[in-house]
Design a protein around this nucleic acid. Structure first.
Length: 599
RNA sequence: GGAGGCGUAGCGAAGUUGGUUAUCGCGCCGGCCUGUCAAGCCGGAGAUCGCGGGUUCGAGGCCCGUCGCUUCCGCCA
């Protein structure tokens, strides 16, 4: 047997081991020297065990123990013994026992730490990212990375049981237009040419359908060169799925079954047999978001019927052109808690989303009070009844073009959910968002553009006449939302070259450009492409939500920070001139301010 | 590209209307201690208050600029 090699982990010992000799390997987590008696906590990824150096230990052992510092890597040989009843630590899985040390060997030392390795380190995130290997030692991070690996396993287990094949697609691919900014990789062998890193395996998985791999999945890394947020960063992981000969309902069923399997296995939670479906229009109209958090209610009410009965000109103006809306949010019992100052804060939230203001009224015993109540004195009772508002409620109102009214009041709704503690954190509320429009009108450029991407199928009923009114065309497009996060997105794809060309025509995408950028896909579709569709789920977001965190950086082993930098290895970084010239590139730095001033 | 917040010892924070030697907890170093488990007690070291400029008799605190991080908007088919 190799010297000092562990015979047990730090998490597995219990009373049944009492009397046995063991060797433990791990890190010194805590070190409590009482003079006569000395305790150590030794930690590995399986748990923590208390080691005792008794008063009767020999001098060698005592001095070895004294020389230990936090995070030294050690081997402890000793005997497992039951703790006296009064010394049992119920908070530790190994709390029934301790190891009476007979020999301690230092396998490696550790410098003074930049921060303490705790369940939840208080050190700021960039410091933790710089020393990511230390932060990953914490129990919390260990648990989350374990959840991630278990999740990936459950996903593969599920798809295997459904006869899917996991097929790899390239990460050096062709840059295609639309969507996010591509990461480009210059080619050394081909001067002036570039690969792109995939934003998703989209085109390849569709090609795989043409190739007859009718059930594909992949846990795929994706890259998008856009500004980061808590729930997105430069590189991320998708559970990418594509199926042939399916309708949207088939994709829903399969996806629901996947999440049911994942939650059953990892959380012991039974999800609903089918997930609620909400149309895009209804989601926007009642929650002000295409990714509504259904863990709390607070639905919008329509205030338009009451606008004529009052004298508030802003609302009348909003409805004038037929494209506006006046939405109301009745916040139960919030009248007292929301001072003018706090309402102004809500208004600032709304303004971020393009609202010009946020109107309000408070519901009193005999009517409405404050804010814009004075304009609705005559119809107060009607309004109260119509909106279902009760004494003590706060009514927030937004009059604006429909989409602005919805999204800005939706932002207010989200904020209220947090501020008023309306969210039950133990819930997982899934819903499908369906019936997305296929085309958006770009007011500035005065043209139609794809709302999602150009390969999504219009719903049957719109296909014959879609050129007449592109704005009305709904697509076979769907998102899956969980607790206010967009968790997955997909569609049934266009597999008919003629229909595809009609879509290109509507959005004014030149045929030549289509041929140049993804002619290979269009060509493939001419050779017997099966009807197909699919979906891609964000793995990082899913783990994040399941782990109860609010940033995916907490569930990615080596994430980039908010400005797209990895503080540990300090990338991106400059490279040698020679590397640049090998790639036939030249760096053009922006002029320094000094140079500009001199001009 | 834009808006807000933060930047004080290795880490986390306090620092009043601008006023003596910048405070506390953790960690670190030394000592004491026989049952702790975030051990305890005593002592000690450790800070150009992000950086630059300005106002002032005097700036950690005010003003201007700048850098870094962070949350959000834009962006993310």
């Amino acid at each position: 047997m190799v010297k000092n090699r562990r015979t047990a982990t730090c998490g597995q010992l219990d009373a049944s081991w009492a009397g046995k000799k063991v060797t433990l390997n791990g890190w010194v987590h805590r070190n409590r020297d009482h003079g006569g008696i000395h305790f150590l906590n030794i930690r590995d990824r399986y748990g923590m065990t208390q080691v005792v150096i008794d008063e009767d230990a020999d001098d060698q052992l005592k001095s070895d123990a004294e020389s230990l510092k936090i995070e030294y890597v050690i081997a402890v040989e000793g005997e497992v013994r039951k703790r006296p009843d009064s010394m049992v630590n119920k908070d530790m899985s190994t709390g029934e026992i301790e190891v009476k040390a007979e020999r301690i060997t230092i396998l490696n030392s550790c410098e003074t730490l930049p921060f303490m390795i705790d369940e939840e380190s208080e050190a700021n995130e960039n410091l933790r990212l710089r020393y990511r290997y230390l932060d990953l030692r914490s129990a919390g991070m260990q648990k989350r990375i374990k959840l991630r690996t278990d999740l990936a396993f459950a996903v593969r287990e599920f798809f295997d049981s459904r006869d899917f094949m996991e097929i790899e697609t390239p990460t050096l691919i062709k840059s295609t237009p639309e969507g996010a900014r591509d990461f480009l990789v210059p080619s050394r062998l081909h001067e002036g040419k570039f690969f792109a890193l995939p934003q998703s395996p989209q085109l390849y998985k569709q090609i795989l359908m043409v190739s007859g791999f009718d059930r594909y999945f992949q846990i795929a890394r994706c890259y998008r060169d856009e500004d980061a947020r808590g729930d997105r960063q430069l590189e991320f992981t998708q559970i990418d799925v594509e199926m042939s000969f399916v309708s949207a309902d088939d994709v829903f069923e399969m996806t629901e079954a996947m999440y049911q399997h994942i939650f059953r296995k990892l959380k012991n939670i039974e999800l609903p047999a089918t997930f609620e479906r909400i149309t895009y229009h209804d989601a926007m109209n009642t929650y002000g978001s295409d990714k509504p958090d259904l863990r709390f209610d607070l639905k919008f009410r329509d205030f338009a019927p009451y606008v004529e009965g009052g004298d508030f000109s802003v609302f009348k103006a909003a409805l004038e052109d037929g494209k506006g809306a006046v939405k109301a949010l009745v916040v139960p019992g919030a009248a007292e808690a929301y001072s003018r100052k706090k309402i102004t804060e809500l208004e600032d939230t709304a303004k971020k989303y393009g609202a010009k203001g946020l109107a309000w009224m408070k519901v009193t015993a005999d009517g409405l009070d404050g804010g814009i109540a004075k304009f609705y004195g005559n119809t107060a009772d009607q309004i109260k009844e119509g909106l279902g508002a009760k004494e003590g409620d706060l009514i927030l109102l937004m009059g604006a073009p429909w989409k602005t009214a919805c999204t800005s009041l939706g932002a207010v709704r989200s904020r209220l959910g947090k501020d008023l503690n309306l969210i039950d954190e133990s819930q997982y509320r899934f819903c499908w968002i369906v019936d997305f429009p296929l085309f958006d009108y770009n007011e500035e450029e005065e043209c139609w553009e794809p709302a999602h991407h150009m390969f999504s199928m219009p719903q049957d009923r719109f296909i014959d006449t879609m050129e007449e009114n592109p704005g009305d065309v709904l697509g076979d497009l769907y998102d899956l939302v969980l607790n206010g996060y967009e968790l997955a997105s997909g569609s049934i794809r266009v597999h008919d070259p003629v229909l595809q060309q009609r879509i290109f025509n509507i959005v004014g995408f030149p045929r030549e450009l289509a041929e140049e950028r993804f002619g290979f896909l269009l060509e493939a579709f001419r050779y017997g492409a099966p009807p197909h569709g699919g979906i891609a789920s964000g793995l990082d977001r899913l783990v994040m939500i399941m782990a109860g965190r609010d940033t995916i950086r907490d569930v990615i082993p080596f994430p980039k920070n908010n400005v797209g930098v990895s503080p540990m290895d300090d990338c991106p970084a400059h490279v040698d001139e020679e590397q640049i010239s090998d790639l036939h590139l030249q760096i053009v730095y922006k002029e320094s301010p000094d140079t500009q001033a001199a001009e």
